[in-house]
Amino acid sequence: MNQRAWFVRPLQYLALVGYLFFLGFPLLWLVSASFKSSRELYSLNVTLLPVEWTFTNFADALERQNLIGSASNSFVVAITTMVLTVLVSMPAAYALARFKGRLRAVGTGWILLSQVFPTILLILPLFLILRTLQLNDTLFGLILVYVTFTMPFSLWMLQGYVSAIPRDLEEAGSMDGANRITVLRVIVFPLLLPGIIATAMFTFVAAWNEFFLALVLIQSPELSTLPLTLRNFIGVAGAVDLGPLAAGSVLATIPSLVVFAILQKKLTGGLLAGAVKG
C-alpha cells in the first residue's frame, strides 16, 4: 500500500522484543525456580537455569495440596461464571448503549458505585445474605457472587463495544425489513464478537484468580479453589515454600492457558474482517 520509512519495521521488532522480555522474563524465572532445589533457592548464586534440575517441587505440590481437585473446582467455577455473565450482560449492555436516558444514568451510576466501594466492606452483608439463602460453602453460591461482581465490568465493556458499532448498520438492516432479533443476530452479534470474547476472557480470569470471596465463602476443603490452595504454601508469619509454590503456580496456569489459546484465536480471526465487509 503506502511507502513506509525503512526503519519502521526494525523499530517495531525492537519494541516487540522489548515487550516479550518484559512479559516473559518473570515467568521464565518462576518456571526456573520451580525446578530448583530448596538449597539452590536459598543460595546467593543467581542463575537463570537451575544448576541441578529437580522435580521434587512438583511432586511436593501435587502430593501436599489438593491441587488437582481445586483446579477442577476453579475450572468449573470460572467457566460457569464466564458463560452466565456473558449471557446475562449482553442484552443489558445493548440496552445500556442504545437506550439513552434514565436507564443509562442509573446503570452507569451503579456500575461505578459498585466498583468504587471497597469490597472488604461488602463481605459481611454478602456473607449473611448467602447464609440466609443457604448458599454459603457451595460452589453455586460462589458462582452467583462472581457473576454479580464481574457484571459491572462486562456491562460496561460490552456497552462500549456496542456504542462503537455504527448505528447506521442496524438501521440499514431494519430498513430491509428484518426484525429486531434478526438484526441483532446477523449484524450486531458478529461485529460484537471480539468484544464478547475479550469480556469472556476477563470474567474467566477474574473468577479464576479471585481469593478473598472464596476464602470467606468456602469452608469445606474439597470445595476449595486454586487461589486458596496456592495460598496454603504460605505458612505462619508469611513464610513461603518457594519451590512448591512456584511448581504449583506453573501447573495452575496451564488450564487458563488452554482457555486463552482457544478464545484468542476468535479474538483476532480473519473471520471478522469478512463480517464487517459483508
Binding site: 515467568l27 496456592l230 509454590l245 492457558l257
Partner: peptide, 12 residues
Amino acid sequence: LALIPWAMPPVV
C-alpha cells in the same frame, strides 16, 4: 505470553 500474567493469582 501477554496473556499469562493475567491468569496468575496476584499472590503468585
